[in-house]
Design a protein around this nucleic acid. Sequence first.
DNA 1: CATGAATGAGTCTTCATTCAT
DNA 2: CATGAATGAAGACTCATTCAT
Lengths: 213, 213, 213, 213
Amino acid sequence: MAARPPGGAASADDDRAAHARAERRRQILEAAKEVFAEAGYHEASINAIIERAHIARGTFYLYFDGKAAVFDALLDEAMRELRARITRIDVEDPAAPPPHLQLRDGLVRVLDYVLGDRLLATILLSGTTATEAEAANRAGAFFGEVRSVIRTALEQGIQMKLVRPCNVEVTSAALLGLVRGVVEHLVTTASPPAATEVVAEMIAVALRGVLNA
Amino acid sequence: MAARPPGGAASADDDRAAHARAERRRQILEAAKEVFAEAGYHEASINAIIERAHIARGTFYLYFDGKAAVFDALLDEAMRELRARITRIDVEDPAAPPPHLQLRDGLVRVLDYVLGDRLLATILLSGTTATEAEAANRAGAFFGEVRSVIRTALEQGIQMKLVRPCNVEVTSAALLGLVRGVVEHLVTTASPPAATEVVAEMIAVALRGVLNA
Amino acid sequence: MAARPPGGAASADDDRAAHARAERRRQILEAAKEVFAEAGYHEASINAIIERAHIARGTFYLYFDGKAAVFDALLDEAMRELRARITRIDVEDPAAPPPHLQLRDGLVRVLDYVLGDRLLATILLSGTTATEAEAANRAGAFFGEVRSVIRTALEQGIQMKLVRPCNVEVTSAALLGLVRGVVEHLVTTASPPAATEVVAEMIAVALRGVLNA
Amino acid sequence: MAARPPGGAASADDDRAAHARAERRRQILEAAKEVFAEAGYHEASINAIIERAHIARGTFYLYFDGKAAVFDALLDEAMRELRARITRIDVEDPAAPPPHLQLRDGLVRVLDYVLGDRLLATILLSGTTATEAEAANRAGAFFGEVRSVIRTALEQGIQMKLVRPCNVEVTSAALLGLVRGVVEHLVTTASPPAATEVVAEMIAVALRGVLNA
DNA sequence: CATGAATGAGTCTTCATTCAT
DNA sequence: CATGAATGAAGACTCATTCAT
């Protein structure tokens, strides 16, 4: 189901149909995004989704296999977008910007996205707990990836004497938490500050801590 | 309605009965704790709880008003225990230990508790997302409190020139996230390191950041 | 509504159109026959039918009023064909072949048809049970007719002293069942014997029973 | 689910509970029997069953896993009862009654049962067609067994020269159909004749055919 | 107090049918 | 004529909660 009709040569009609289909899909995804962000996976009902999307029950199942499938699609979207914004810090290419700028730019990209789609971020943050097994695993795996990126950065930094020696397991967990904490704050704050300002604070804390001098 | 039988003077019989009652309650809470920690609020079923507690369905409702009520009780327990371990840093009493030791001791107490009851900590961490409204609010309020403690500490620190001037909103969110990140790591790690060691790392990151020198 | 376009004088164009239309109809009927025979009335889905017929959903409804209508058409086809092969035994016309030959030829015709279109026979056999009321009644009525033919033959036979006196109600039910049993056997057997051979066995049992001498 | 609570020593209370449970189960089975007999497997709805049984939806699922499970239970009941009444004809024990009496008594037992529970017989007859795969297979296997009994009897009879040589495949199919035809007739007839009379006719047809002399 | 059978509101999901293009 | 996206009625099933024993 929910599959594009096959066919090699795409006529103008096919294009139009595919476009309409994609729009419909988006419409459902947007409605589902709102519902999931407000109510969480379990409290969300297909009913609420189709009402908000102004479609009939059957239409929903024309585009998604079920509740889990829409949730997965949303999760995937969030993860895909974020993955594209999270890049490992390049310390070898001499043409690359200095590491702290790479870090800053990456975080700005991430927070910009988060601020631009707070509902989606909410869903991702909630994705690790209390949802159906598969989605939880997927979201868990995603944060595992992110932590892995952080861990690697720490290890490289230590080797280059930029970072002081530390327990990378604990520290990477701490830094991931730090970012998540800030994201959660931004997502739930009515009028959040600009991403660049927030990032400056985050980096200051992460790199130099809160102590004076 | 899960209410203690009324009566002014407590006889020996009453005591024994109350004791038996309290034990029963505990037995249910322990079962529920395991179930909620494993499955999350929604996936958890009354069935699973009463099976693990070896009681009949009706008995459950003699001790708790329903699923939400047990969850709340567990949440309350976790919050009560943690509140007792989280103390505002006293900077006025000259007899009090220096702030950084107060901080360290507080964190050790908290992490000791978390490591001693990982299930409960799991529940609390999951409590903010995707559960029924009331509990989510309660857990949310709790973390709000904690963040408030952190914010106050930061503000005091800034006034005392111990802490560099910063955006306390963002920074408190970051530090709360940092702690949560570490707790989540500990809770999901098979053989976690000792609390004191972890706390040392956390404090190092929080106070001085990860940069060398 | 599956109605032939109106019009008095049939032009060549009309003919061609009518022909195309009839072919389309046939194509759907063949697909439906396979699906109904494989899955039974209820398990059969419009989806399966239109997929096998390589037509669009809406097209199906241009030729038939719905699922029941195609099933009915198939049932009718089977019943029409069989009715044409089942003839009352003529005992009055002196030019007619002797009764037992008429019986034999009639059965051979029936079994030949059944063996030639096993799917259709399967549908007819399944038509009496567990389908929507109307079709069940129609199929039921058909078998009632057949039994009536048998009953009449028995009564005539008794009058002519060819058949021993018996309870014609029970005996006609028995003989109808006998035929249905054999048909079902043929329809579900991979490589069934030739019709003539089977008919010889059937007639032997029906006329003389299984006892020796 | 729907399982007797375990426990070695059965107290009077347990007995009473088990009895109540068994009665409830029966009540549901009876309601389901009527509904399935009237409407067939697919047209039958859980709704219709619970309405006729005067129970709530959930209660139904306390006793059966679903629609298929009740149907299976009914099918099993019918098959169990009939199997107990169908015995292979014993031609070796000299103390056994003569074969034709064994045959007669067996058929009388079967028809008595069928007449005593026409609804159940209806369900069994409908069980081969158009139901969910498993049940259809089970019913199909049952009739396969019965035919096997008939086939064996024919082969023994042929060896003993009681039965004339014949194609046992076709003939057993014919005789099974004969019995089914008569059963169907009895089941759908308002005031059917007594089993003994019907059996006499059936045996007459099967053994000697319908011809005079 | 303890029990567990009974309840029924709430959800998900399927699929025959319609209709605008 | 043909299409296939949209529809929504209908049905199966779950599970928190109640209450008579």
